[in-house]
Computed example of a mutant assay.
Amino acid sequence: MTGLCKDRVVIVTGAGRGIGRAHALAFAAEGARVVVNDVGVALDGSATGEGPAAQVVAEIEKRGGVAVANTDDVADFGGAGNLVNTALESFGRLDVLVNNAGFVRDRMLVNLGEDEWDAVIRVHLKGHFAPLRSAAGYWRAEAKAGRVPSARVINTSSGAGLLGSVGQGNYSAAKAGIAGLTLVAAAELGRYGVTVNAIAPSARTRMTEEVFAETMARPDSGFDAMAPENISPLVVWLGSAESAGVTGRVFEVEGGKVSLAQGWRHGPPVDKGARWEPGELGPVVEKLIAGAAEPEPVYGAN
Score class of each variant (00 low, 15 high):
294 E>P: 00
203 A>W: 03
285 V>P: 00
226 M>Q: 12
243 S>M: 09
250 V>H: 01
260 L>E: 10
246 V>W: 12
217 A>G: 09
217 A>W: 07
248 G>W: 06
298 V>T: 13
249 R>A: 09
254 E>L: 08
265 R>W: 09
205 T>D: 03
210 E>S: 15
279 G>W: 03
226 M>P: 00
290 A>I: 02
294 E>M: 07
298 V>A: 03
221 S>P: 07
284 V>S: 04
211 V>T: 15
231 I>E: 01
254 E>Q: 12
202 S>V: 13
235 V>N: 02
283 P>I: 07
227 A>H: 13
282 G>D: 08
228 P>C: 11
251 F>H: 01
232 S>D: 01
248 G>F: 06
270 V>E: 14
230 N>P: 04
243 S>E: 09
286 E>G: 06
206 R>Y: 10
227 A>N: 13
251 F>T: 00
211 V>A: 15
271 D>M: 11
198 A>E: 05
264 W>T: 10
248 G>E: 06
254 E>V: 11
284 V>L: 04
197 N>G: 04
290 A>E: 12
263 G>D: 10
243 S>Q: 11
244 A>L: 07
208 T>Q: 03
245 G>D: 13
237 W>L: 09
299 Y>G: 05
230 N>Y: 05
216 M>G: 11
264 W>R: 14
238 L>M: 09
265 R>L: 12
260 L>S: 04
275 R>A: 14
274 A>R: 15
289 I>N: 03
297 P>Q: 04
289 I>T: 08
267 G>E: 09
211 V>F: 15
269 P>S: 15
212 F>K: 04
261 A>C: 06
290 A>Q: 06
291 G>T: 02
202 S>Y: 05
